[in-house]
Design a protein around this nucleic acid. Sequence first.
RNA 1: CGGGGCGUGGCGCAGUCUGGUAGCGCAUCUGCUUUGGGAGCAGAGGGUCGCAGGUUCAAAUCCUGCCGCCCCGACCA
Length: 439
Amino acid sequence: MRLSRYFLPLLKETPAEAQIVSHRLMLRAGMLRQEAAGIYAWLPLGHRVLQKVEQIVREEMDRAGAVELLMPTLQLADLWRESGRYDDYGAEMLRITDRHERELLYGPTNEEMITEIFRAYVRSYKALPKNLYHIQWKFRDEQRPRFGVMRGREFLMKDAYSFDVDEAAGKAAYNRMFVAYLRLFKRMGLSAIPMKAETGPIGGDLSHEFIVLAQTGESQVFLDRRMLDLPVPGEDVDYEGDLEPIVTDWTRLYAATEDVHDADRYGRETPEADQITARGIEVGQTFFFGDKYSKPMKAVVSGPDGVERPVQMGSYGVGVSRLLGAIIEASHDEAGIIWPDAVAPFGVGIVNLRPGDAATDRACEEAYVALKQGGKEPLLDDTDERPGGKFAAMDLIGLPWQLIIGPRGLAEGKVEVKRRASGERHTLPLVEALSMMGA
RNA sequence: CGGGGCGUGGCGCAGUCUGGUAGCGCAUCUGCUUUGGGAGCAGAGGGUCGCAGGUUCAAAUCCUGCCGCCCCGACCA
């Protein structure tokens, strides 16, 4: 992409409404525009990152055996009356009436709908296990939206739902999601720690919140330092096999958010030297809730014994749009965002220091084509902006690599490569620069 | 939902107390000079002062009502 043709409205000054760093940087970097409290338009740069994050979630869900579908944003109120949640859900649920006076709602989640879909088609244990997910916009009419995209009213969420014949199979399905979550957050460059979570009225102890550690996190968390060193399962993890050992490894050590923190247990189980108190951002949550919805909504399957029983369900959410905020909270400096390679909107920013200079233009063009062919998704700054402004802009939008090309360096046959994360720079011939960046 | 604050060119703000026909910085446009870490000079454009009523000769400024947004708290993926 050539910057001169792109749409990247950068802000030199921070809009007054933004307080936390990720919100400020997203506005300044031209990723986001607020349209109403907690409702945002995703500008091209933000949209690209959103899609990258979404794609990683999708790949890891698919790898774990989940199947993607897409449910609508609007749902019928009657569906929610079946589970009893229409009345339980408070003002957070956005209720809408259509021209026929039918009551609708903008879905805050999809347990009811997925259960309805499942029960319409599945009757036998032989069709199980199943895990269906979608990535869709949700709406929760928060009383007080804040922190930009981290607590908006409209948000993009991946939610998966597992269906199993009995509790043991349900637990295995839960484990698959647990492992998939470890992997997908890791791929985004995040260290997300599963922490025991409140299950609320659902009961049982099978629920975890996945928390990203960041200094500016919204809530306080307590954990065993050794959790940070646990190995994340690789691409070759066998989702057909027994994942219990991995889950046990990741749940044995103490890790809790402030609302479920047990100071006595913490002191007992975790050596003082390994105790960490930090701030965290919740980016995902896993639940196993058995027949909470399948029972009232009559989603039943026949077992091998010919007896019909409610299917055992779990649900697994990832806050896709929220993740952008979390990633920035966890990865930025004074100058701007530092994107992890896997989610960066562009792989390399090429800075043409002197557009109009024949040799410089030629070298930039050569680099642009090579990087593009190498799948590096370059963004070429071919604007008339002054060098200082270009450098500041590149640092702000946080592309992993900067390739700086100008007449001064070219006179020596060299260009400069800068790694955004470390600030490390190298002056070297263009070919070498390209191979350094993997093109 | 309780408490506090704010709404003035695209962005950041001053002006409001004490009414007199709107200003600063950045950004934008034009010209010239500049060009390796947010340039200089000269000129230009752009504002129903959140909205609606009211008071007044006169309202960004005073009064009433409404709307929007932000912060702290309670609540939440």
